[in-house]
Design a protein around this nucleic acid. Structure first.
Lengths: 253, 253
DNA sequence: GCTATTTGCTGACCCAGATCAAGAGTTACA
DNA sequence: TGTAACTCTTGATCTGGGTCAGCAAATAGC
C-alpha cells in the first residue's frame, strides 16, 4: 500500500512479505496482529516459481513443510497399486497444501503444478513452535485443518451419492466459489486442469465429463470455450447440485 | 491397575481417569507425561452412555466439544437436500469425533450411536488452551487431524475408483485393522452397522453389499454369520484391495 | 513452417451395479 | 407373545456411465 521506495525495491517475488500479500486476508495471517504477521513472515520462504508439470513434493518424501499457494494451481494425487494416478485435490491461491503429511512425517500424496505456480514454503516445525506463542495462529491452523476435513467429507458424499451431472455441476460451482472468495469473477473463469483431470478427480471417464459439459452448454447452463467457462444459469446449476432450499448454504466440494 | 479401594470406589464409569483408561495409549494422551495426562484429565467430562439410536450431536448445533469414543460405535452423517442420510464415517473406541466443527463453530454432521456407546467429552476451548501449554498435546492434535485428512482422502480414492468388491474388502480390512490396534482379534469381529449403513457409506446399494458378502463367503475369503465376520483369507482379501505393488489388477473370483 | 502429440468431442456398444420385487429372518415394543 | 417394522438375501430386469474407436482441434517440438 504505502511502501517506501526502499521497501518496494526489495519486494521482488521472492522476498515479498505477508503484509503486502493480497492473499493475507484468506491465508494463514487471517486475524493475526501486525507484529504476529511479521513473526510468521520470518519463517516463510518464498520459492521460485514451479513450471507446469513440476513437482512441489512427491509421495513418500519426508514431510517438513506445508505450502501456501500464491499464484497458479496445484493438484495432489496418489499413484494406485495399478500404477494409475488418482487426484485427491486441486489447490488455488491462498490454500494450504501438505497438511496430510503431519501424521506420518511423510507426504502421502504428490503435488504437481498444473500451470506456472508460486508457493510460500512454511517449515512445519517452525510453524508449530510459533503457533504455541500465537494462540490465534494456532486457532487458525486448527480451523484450516478442520475445514479441510469437512470439505473432504463433502467430497466423499459427492463421490458416493451423486451422478455425473451433479458431480460436474458441484465441481464448477465449487471452483466458482473459490474464485469469488479471492475477488475474481464467480461466473467467468479458466479451468487450469484438463477434462481428464476433472474426470479423474470426480470418478468419471473423460468422455463423460466432456459429454456433460457439452450438454450443460446446450441447455444454456454454462458457456464453454475450451478451458474458459462461464456459468450462465447459477440458479439451475445450484438446483442440480441440490443446494438446500432455505439456508443459503453454498455447495462445497 | 493398582488402585486403592478408595480410588476404585470413585472410579465408576463416569469418573474414571485417562490414566486408568485402556485406550490412553491410542487416544489423545499418547506421548503425554503423567502430569500432563492429569491436566488433560481434568478438562474431560465422562458422559453417561448413549443408547442405540441416540444422538451425540446434531448437524447445525453449536460446536463446543470433540468427543473420544470409549466403548461402542458411532456414525456421523449428513442429511442431503433430498432428505436422505449420507454416512461420512464410523467411529470406534479411542477415535475422536467432531473435529470437523472447529472451522465453522457448528457441527457440519450429526453423530448417532450404533449401539450402546460411551464417550469422553472434551470441551474444545479448554483443549486448545491446554494445547498451548503442552506442546506434545498440540502436536498430537495436529497429528490426529492430519491423519483424518489422509484417511478421508484414501476414502475418496476408494469411492471414486474402486468397484464393489474392492470397496467391501477395503471396508472389512479397515475395520479389522482398527480392531487389531485396540488389541482385539483382527480376524473375528462383529459389525455394529447394518448392511444398509455399509452400503450407504461405500456408495453401494444394500443388495450389492449383501451379494458381495455372500460371494466372499462362497469363495472362502470370509465367514459370515449375521453381523459376525471372520476374515479367513487375509492374503486374498488384501490382493483384492490392491495392496500388492507389483501384480496387476485381480480378476474377480 | 510442418509433423507429432496431446486434448477434446461424439457415436456405438456393453456391463457393473442400481432398482424392483418378494420372501424369510430378526428385532422391538405394546 | 404377537405383530408390526425392520433387516437380509436372492432373483429378474434396467440403465448410467464405462469402454472402445475414430476424428478434429489445439500445442509442442523440430
Amino acid at each position: 500500500m504505502s511502501m517506501t521506495h526502499t521497501q518496494s525495491r526489495f519486494n521482488s517475488t521472492l522476498t515479498s512479505q505477508c503484509q503486502n500479500c493480497s492473499l493475507s486476508a484468506l491465508c494463514l495471517p487471517i486475524a493475526l496482529a501486525d507484529e504476529d504477521i511479521n513473526r510468521l513472515d520470518q519463517i516463510i520462504e518464498r520459492k521460485k516459481p514451479l513450471k507446469k508439470g513440476e513437482f512441489l513434493f512427491r509421495q513418500g518424501e519426508a514431510f517438513d513443510s506445508v505450502y501456501a499457494v500464491r499464484s497458479g494451481t496445484l493438484k495432489t494425487f496418489n499413484i494406485t497399486s495399478v500404477g494409475e494416478e488418482q487426484i485427491t485435490g486441486f489447490y488455488c491461491p491462498s490454500e494450504l497444501v501438505g497438511l496430510s503429511g503431519i501424521d506420518s512425517n511423510v507426504y502421502p500424496v504428490s503435488a504437481k503444478a498444473l500451470e506456472t505456480t508460486t508457493v510460500c514454503e512454511i517449515p512445519f516445525s517452525h510453524l508449530e513452535e510459533l503457533s504455541s506463542q500465537i494462540p490465534s495462529l494456532k486457532h487458525q491452523l486448527f480451523k484450516v485443518m478442520s475445514r479441510k476435513i469437512s470439505d473432504d467429507q463433502q467430497m466423499m458424499v459427492l463421490l458416493g451419492k451423486k451422478n455425473a451431472d451433479e458431480k460436474v455441476a458441484s465441481f464448477l460451482l465449487n471452483l466458482s466459489n473459490r474464485f469469488k472468495k479471492r475477488g475474481y469473477s464467480a461466473s467467468s473463469f479458466r479451468l487450469s486442469m484438463s477434462r481428464g483431470e476433472i474426470g479423474n478427480y470426480l470418478g468419471l471417464a473423460v468422455e463423460t465429463v466432456s459429454r456433460v459439459i457439452t450438454r450443460f452448454q446446450k441447455n444454456e447452463l454454462i458457456h464453454v470455450d475450451g478451458k474458459e467457462i462461464e456459468i450462465v444459469d447459477f440458479h439451475e446449476m445450484q438446483k442440480l447440485v441440490g443446494v438446500a432450499s432455505d439456508c443459503g448454504k453454498i455447495a462445497r466440494i
